[in-house]
Design a protein around this nucleic acid. Structure first.
Lengths: 330, 330
DNA sequence: TTGAAAGCGCTAACAC
DNA sequence: GTGTTAGCGCTTTCAA
């Protein structure tokens, strides 16, 4: 096992100088820096992170605390975060939790005391629980929040969900739809509120009326999307399009359409949100919105490792046009 | 920050004794043990794992190296593994990789040199790449393999996929099906071979002929399932049931059925494998097989932490009966 | 710009 | 059964 000492000897400097070079600290002559780098690479030196940490430095560990709403969402976040971690010499520790857990903060304290991650990554719904976020903040370490709440703070990573919703609405309006039903997402989810915001704003900007009867409450699960859409389709003057706040509810909407003997997209257009793998597997494939989840995971890591370099703006969403939308009949 | 020293003082013993108690080493009087435990809990002591590791002990880190074939599969594994980790004071480090990566073993070496996990968890397809598994083994640490290859070794965690396949076949045969089409899975995937094995054995045991024309090759993706099923349905004497080696291909089979104007399950029964979230979302909901993925993740952790206590047998699968099967017509 | 020394919190080896 | 000592491989003083 090669240690910093071996590198120091080979480079003919003290271990402190090696440490400086490896941690990119200032006050080292370029030439010495070069020599140390060469020695390290010749010896195939890999720093022992337990030692780094114990000596008061970084642990090179980043923890992702999450309550899994959706495997493909979390999975994409992990892929992006882990890739960036790898590039930076870090490792990603995952901590799936139950957000209802009474002792969540105790769990975080244990995490910090035992492995001392250099930062904690939080995704919805945890990242939108202000009380919890504050408690974690008080523990003192760095934090990155994947969340629709986009303040001016460095710690927030998000896409413009309101803008995405407006883009979807522009598509629907462009197709000629005028009666557009909306299935809201979970009331606690901030992104869901923004999606609804975008819906409302679009209607107003298009000079259309915001008809309360065309809005139904859902909770992000298939069943609620099914029921909400049933209610909308039972309306005397039913919508020609349904905008569901996520893909799962859109699948519910699709089922409701079938129950009513409606063909999608000829008789009814349907829109989802999230671009889950399922959305392209079902038939017709769902027009939906893709958030750059891998980039968001990577941005979370960046936010923790070098807050200054982290993206401060919205990350770009993408409208995925597939087969669930068409102009309204007649 | 409370350290082992504080605990030692409070309990009136040496730090070594505290270490012994905390690590459940033998040769400590029950009474002393009790005193140390009390002191630790009163001080809310949490061991610094960087120090444990540096001193030559465990890192309390377990790494899961995986190439993500399926988010819900990986996610379930992580939930089970992380939960067991938490119970044992460990943490789960995730390393999503590309199994085609030329320098996979270099990545593992870096992992071992920097954070020194106490064990490495491998899932398919990595766990079924014998060459790679051997290279990882040579690095010396503990290893746990989630894989359909069930040797007598302690490191293998699996369900009886052949048995599951036979159970599915028993269901189909019980319903009265005699011409059952089979869509094989990816040729490199050992579990897929076992599923096919079960199919063959069941036919033979039922005194039926193994008709090569009824077997089509797939690759676990929807498209291949669609194409394979098209071929089977185009047969002069078409099957009354299709057994697809995973859910995604079963969805493809469903689409093929629709193309042929066949109703599922009235005209054609369809079976999947894996119980992905999608399988209960599509219509008709798929009859499929569920592997206890969370338990398998937990067993992986167990295998690493205490190999002797780890389950040595198959973990139980479960047949999920839903709406995609019915007796054949006529 | 560089180095020497101290010490992070724990476990291993060995003494008693 | 229990304690003493040394030391793991780094980073942090602080001095030169």
């Amino acid at each position: 096992m090669t240690t910093i000492k071996d590198v120091a000897e080979r480079a003919g400097v003290s271990i402190k100088t090696v440490s400086r070079v490896l941690n990119e600290e200032p006050h080292v002559r370029a030439q010495v820096k070069e020599r140390v780098r060469a020695a390290a690479s010749e010896l195939d030196y890999k720093p022992n992170r337990a030692a780094s940490r114990l000596a008061g430095g970084r642990s090179f560990l980043i923890a992702h605390l999450y309550d899994n709403p959706n495997p493909s969402y979390i999975s994409a976040l992990h892929i992006g975060a882990a890739r960036r971690c790898r590039e930076l010499g870090y490792h990603l520790v995952v901590e799936p939790v139950n957000s209802q857990d009474k002792d969540l903060i105790g769990l975080v304290q244990r995490l910090v005391a035992t492995i001392a991650p250099d930062g904690i990554l939080l995704s919805p719904p945890l990242s939108e629980n202000t009380g919890f976020v504050e408690s974690v903040r008080k523990l003192g370490g760095r934090i990155a929040l994947i969340s629709a709440t986009h303040g001016d703070e460095l710690t927030h990573i998000s896409t413009d969900e309101r803008g995405a919703s407006k883009a979807i609405m522009a598509h629907l309006l462009g197709l000629g739809h005028r009666r557009i039903g909306f299935v809201r997402g979970h009331p606690q989810h901030f992104g869901a509120t923004l999606r609804y915001d975008g819906y409302c704003q679009s209607l107003i900007e298009a000079g259309l009326e915001l008809e309360p009867a065309l809005v139904a409450q859902g909770y992000f699960d298939l069943q609620s999307g099914l029921e909400a859409t049933r209610a909308l389709l039972a309306l005397p003057q039913r919508p020609t399009a349904i905008f569901a706040s996520n893909d799962e509810m859109a699948v519910g909407a699709l089922m409701a359409a079938r129950e009513f003997g409606l063909n999608v997209p000829e008789d009814l257009s349907i829109i989802g949100f999230d671009d889950t793998p399922m959305s392209r597997l079902i038939s017709p494939a769902l027009t939906t919105v893709r958030q750059p989840l891998e980039a968001m995971g990577a941005a979370g890591v960046e936010t923790i490792v070098s807050p200054d370099k982290a993206p401060r703006d919205y990350l770009d969403f993408e409208i995925i046009l597939r087969d669930s939308c068409a102009p309204p009949k007649g």
